[in-house]
Amino acid sequence: MSLVKIEGLCKSFGGLEVLRDISLDVERGEVIALIGKSGSGKSTFLRCINGLEQMNSGTIHVDAEPVEADERKLQKLRLKVGMIFQQFNLFPHLTALDNTALALRVVKNMSAAEARAVGLARLEKVGLGHRADSRPHQLSGGQQQRVAIARALAMDPVVLLCDEVTSALDPELVEEVLQVIRRLAEEGMTVIMVTHEMSFARSVCSRVVFMHEGRLHEMGHPEEVFGNPKTPELRQFLGQTASAATAE
């Protein structure tokens, strides 16, 4: 069975249909780039996968764990799913190390020493072992996002959801975060990422999924999707992002 299995996912906010009958299988080790216009439902899609949004119908399984409304069951699912946010959402009252160690202690009942050891190892993995005692506001945006990645990795998830993780960063800080994700991908981590970094998607991702008006409009290998887009919507979208990129 696929690592992430999504079938017939529908989600609306009030009368607004945001996700329409989405089905997607993601295999272990795949890196999926989710692209599409703002408002097309990408964030909502990711948030349904770890139960931050409740779906209206459909089923989602991650590593055979179903997404259900029940809090305890959601907890079991979320142990397998890491999430990185656009705005980092680090805990401002805790140091970088305590950010990574908190859930280990609270959720996994590790001892303080154990949790700190795991947390520190993950911070080192993202190249921030030396900033373990810094508070978030003392770190640059790129460093904060890397701490957020370390924090998610500390829980040993089987899949990582990344929602525009470089969009809030100054341009010169984008690369250090992408670098970390690239390394994770090479090590075989399964990643589903919403991104506007087309060249990154092209070079790192195994599959690109184009979302349009709440549907998976077109998907395929990056070469195919970028080189030979089939639908006019995707062609228009790629044209826009290309011209936006050259305009910058």
Partner: peptide, 10 residues
């Protein structure tokens, strides 16, 4: 949301 995503209960 970050806390919940780390599998904490409400």
């Amino acid at each position: 949301e970050a806390a919940l995503s780390l599998a904490m209960l409400r």
